[in-house]
Amino acid sequence: MTITVKDVAKRAGVATSTVSRVINDHSSISEATKKKVRKVMDELGYVPNIAARNLGKRTSSAIGVILPPLDSKERIGNPFYLEIIEAINDEAQKHEMTTAIATAKSFPRLLENVKRMHRQKQVDGFILVYSDRDDLVIDYLYENAIPFTLVGQPYKNEEEIVFVDNDNQLLGKHATDFLIKNHHENILFITNTTHESVYFERYFGYQKAMMLAGLPALASVPLEKPEDFVGFEQLLKETKATAAVVIDDIFALRIIQLAEMYGYKVPENFSVISFNNSIFSTLMHPYLTSIDVDVSELGTMAMRKLMDQIHEVLSTGVRLVVPHKLVKRETVVPLTQE
């Protein structure tokens, strides 16, 4: 038999509204009454309904995880998002919180979803698992003083926004340094996004490594639309590139296939290094050399920092940097010196 609030109220000799106030620890109820009602709840084995309790508290005991617009198969299939959602959810459970996902195919639609979740009090705060120059969502959250944590580096208000990130500029430099140490000099930086902060930071790191080594830093190679791929073969020939830093693992696999279609062989005469160390890095040969960004730690810390804000522990912006490590596999080999 299910024990209800009415059952508790009847046994305790109080109104059902009093039981509700005791559940929500309302200050209008005396400690003696709270003690009596709680004793009856224990005796009957009554477990408060979380949804009902939250209505009284005007909280949801849930957080929203905001994904970027999933406007391509590569984004939809990117394991980064699934891994970070899993880490956020695991940490949320430790705080007795649940997670809700906000996603759409465009920023305007995504913003409407987030607004609805906020206005209907479905969540107590948000975690954005991306940082995009064209984002409308972060402005809405910031301007309305809604608790949120950003995974990535914000484009503005860095001193006030709480964000968790890797040092992506250092990641870009380390990836490029590794190729340089393997005697590569004509190195490309290839990306499928040019408006996310992760692109800017990693490309800056590439440029820094090249300049410090006295090598020419080439313009980044954006392959965002089908027509962008048309000139890729000619670009490889003109630059005489022997290696590439690619924005992430899933896109790196596509670049390997593309290079091999044009007669290059990875890693024999074209080395590739990427980022995230996802499941894709070991799904097919050659296994990808990749930089592990510790996705699990990014998600865990983002959730902890959001809880700090919800409980008003933090009053100013904080940047938390998660360490990374390079995982050597099969797609980078020393360039044969002629």
Rank of each mutant, 00 (worst) to 15 (best):
A241P: 03
L55S: 02
R116P: 01
K181H: 14
M211F: 09
K121V: 10
S60C: 07
H324F: 15
M1T: 09
N182H: 11
L253A: 12
A209S: 13
A209E: 01
L55V: 06
F126N: 08
D248R: 09
Q257F: 08
A243G: 00
E227I: 06
I180Y: 01
D228Q: 08
E74W: 01
F80G: 01
S17E: 06
N24S: 15
Y262G: 01
E158K: 15
E86T: 05
F126S: 01
E268V: 06
E43H: 06
G299W: 04
T239M: 00
D135N: 11
D292N: 14
G13P: 06
I291K: 09
A100P: 00
V47F: 07
S20G: 03
Q122Y: 08
T193H: 13
L82G: 14
P108Q: 09
Y262L: 03
K10D: 15
V333K: 12
A252R: 07
E224I: 13
I138Q: 13
E96N: 14
V123Q: 09
A217L: 04
N113V: 15
A15E: 04
T242S: 14
V230Q: 06
V129D: 07
A259C: 13
D165C: 13
H95Q: 13
V272E: 02
L141Y: 11
L44M: 11
E43T: 10
D228V: 01
Y46H: 07
F251A: 06
Q257A: 13
L82T: 15
A302I: 01
D248K: 11
L306F: 03
V198M: 12
E112D: 15
S106H: 12
Y206M: 07
N277E: 14
I23R: 05
S28I: 04
E260V: 00
K156P: 00
V230C: 05
R304C: 08
T300A: 01
I101M: 10
P48S: 09
K240H: 11
G214I: 12
G152M: 08
A213D: 07
D135F: 13
L253G: 12
V164T: 02
D248P: 03
P267H: 12
F232I: 04
V123P: 01
S281A: 15
S61Q: 04
T289K: 13
K305G: 00
I291F: 07
Y203S: 08
A302N: 01
S281P: 05
T316L: 07
S290F: 07
V162Y: 09
Y140E: 08
A302Y: 12
Y287C: 10
S281L: 09
S197M: 10
T176Y: 09
L188Q: 06
L55M: 06
V327T: 12
N168A: 06
L44T: 05
V164I: 13
E233Y: 03
A302L: 09
M301W: 07
L55R: 00
A15V: 03
D292A: 06
L218F: 11
G56F: 06
E260A: 06
